[in-house]
């Protein structure tokens, strides 16, 4: 498990297939301890710095650390901390670095986690930076697929919604490029992935197809991955009004789906997955969210070099 030890986790691109399998096997082991405390990281402290709102990512990191026997310190909201006095990111990170053994950061600016990792000696884990990266969410997503199907190779995966501004799409496609998969990019043309990501897809030779209507492709899919149309990342309000709600997953849309199709969503959802879908055999987003704890337990353990 040496490849994880002491390393920053900034983007999904830094990891190979073997690294991912090490992580997944460790996560599967951690699933057994998802409701108890392992004393692997007694005495270790995780610094949590979230400059953007988060529910599942932050809580699953914190729960993971507690379940491993460690503790966490958390930078309060901007009003409660020195950020309110105008402290810069570098100085805040230096402080967290000296107080903790590992830092988890989310920031609205792209590249913030990479910069934090340059400033800090402790390992830095990127919990989302702007519209660019969300590597641990992507690891969780691919882990969920692996737990469901026992493999990733050969899967047909439909990505539905905002593929342009959703940061997890970048990271997810980067991780999926390690496997032999086919990707369907289902979105309005204005929300297709950016050139930077399409260049990556083409360079890696990932098989993909565009679609504007889920009905065209649903019969081919093993996985539908739905992302929210994110108001905060679409600069133009007129554009937002045009596309919101145009990609909604309903029971009706699932009529032609394969039996074994699973639906994933990083959550929170607004109205892009109808609540009725929750009760179908396809819904897996709650399991996906639950697996966030063991996956992040495994990640923290490997990075901090807990008992091997």
């Amino acid at each position: 498990m040496g490849n994880w030890h002491g390393r920053d986790v900034i983007s999904a691109l830094e990891w190979g297939r073997g690294d991912l399998m090490d992580l997944f096997q460790e996560a599967q082991e951690m699933e057994k301890h998802a409701k108890s405390i392992l004393h692997i990281l007694d005495g270790k402290v995780m610094g949590v710095a979230f400059f953007e709102p988060s529910t599942r990512t932050r809580l699953s990191f914190e729960t993971a650390m507690l379940r491993l026997g460690g503790r966490f310190i958390e930078l309060g909201g901007a009003e409660a901390s020195s950020l309110a006095k105008g402290e810069n990111l570098a100085d805040t990170v230096r402080m967290l670095d000296s107080y903790s053994n590992i830092i988890v950061i989310r920031h609205e600016l792209e590249g913030a986690a990479k910069f934090a990792a340059e400033v800090a000696d402790s390992p830095v884990i990127n919990a989302g930076d702007g519209a660019q990266n969300h590597p641990t969410q992507a690891m969780l997503d691919v882990y969920t697929m692996w737990r469901e199907f026992g493999r990733i190779d050969g899967l047909s995966i439909g990505l539905l919604g905002d593929l342009r501004y959703a940061r997890v799409i970048n990271s997810l496609i980067q991780l999926l490029s390690l496997f032999n998969v086919k990707i369907y990019l289902v979105s309005p043309p204005s929300l297709r992935p950016r050139n930077e990501l399409m260049d990556f897809i083409n360079e890696r030779g990932i098989r993909y197809a565009y679609a504007e209507d889920l009905n065209e492709v649903i019969g081919d899919l093993d996985v539908i991955y739905v992302v929210r149309i994110q108001k905060e990342r679409i600069p133009d309000p007129i554009e937002y009004e045009k596309v919101k709600g145009s990609f909604k997953l309903t029971i009706d849309a699932l009529r032609n789906a394969r039996n074994e199709l699973i639906i994933l969503h990083p959550l929170p959802r607004i109205d892009e997955v109808d609540f009725a879908v929750d009760y179908t055999r396809h819904a897996r987003y709650f399991r996906q969210a639950a697996l966030g704890v063991p996956l992040r337990m495994a990640l923290i353990k490997l990075v901090l070099g807990g008992v091997e």
């Binding site: 810069n88 990111l89 570098a90 600016l109 792209e110 590249g111 990479k114 910069f115 340059e118 519209a131």
Partner: peptide, 14 residues
């Protein structure tokens, strides 16, 4: 050119 890039944030040593 990206205004949301960390390198465009004022007062950061980047």
């Amino acid at each position: 050119k990206n205004p949301k890039c960390i390198t465009n944030k004022a007062r950061e040593p980047v």
